[in-house]
């Protein structure tokens, strides 16, 4: 099910989505994005490089925004833009809660700007905006006998 573009209002909030930051999640997403930087899978090397542990890579952070906004908007939605600033790291054992608000709507372009934040116990892991588009759905004519 996809959201009804016309029913969306500026100021609407998206349901919070808490994501458990496990080692598996950090490593699986890093490898799925083909990012083999050791700070995303090797705790010993991550510490040597000045981090307290392995941490989520930015491709995964972008992916989490993508997932969050399309889970809300539904499969009809297309993602036009994801603009994020990275704050504190997503370390294993933490929970990142995704939060979102409707910032603006463009009736002509059928786009929605969403403010998105991913917050963990240390602060904001990511904060920024995502723009999604909900193309007009084609109404199939009713079949009459």
């Amino acid at each position: 099910m996809s959201i009804d573009f016309d029913a969306v209002q500026v100021g609407d909030t998206l349901p919070d989505d808490p994501i458990e930051i496990t080692r598996t999640l950090i490593i699986a997403t890093a490898l799925a994005s083909r990012d083999y930087q050791d700070v995303h899978h090797d705790p010993v090397l991550a510490v040597e490089r000045g981090s307290k542990d392995i941490f989520m890579n930015i491709l995964a952070s972008n992916g989490m925004v993508d997932r969050y906004v399309t889970a809300w908007a539904g499969p009809n939605a297309r993602v036009n833009r994801v603009k994020i600033r990275l704050g504190v790291s997503n370390y294993p054992g933490d929970t990142m809660t995704m939060k979102g608000t409707v910032l603006a709507k463009d009736e002509q372009a059928r786009t929605i700007d969403l403010e998105v934040v991913g917050e963990n116990s240390l602060g904001n892991h990511l904060s920024g905006t995502a723009t999604i588009e909900l193309p007009e759905t084609i109404e199939l004519p009713e079949v009459t006998a």
């Binding site: 930015i58 833009r81 994020i84």
Partner: peptide
């Protein structure tokens, strides 16, 4: 400057 961390990403998508 041997360590690296990503700080910002602004990704615009033109097509799927």
């Amino acid at each position: 400057y041997t360590s690296v961390v990503a700080t910002d990403s602004d990704f615009e998508f033109h097509r799927e």
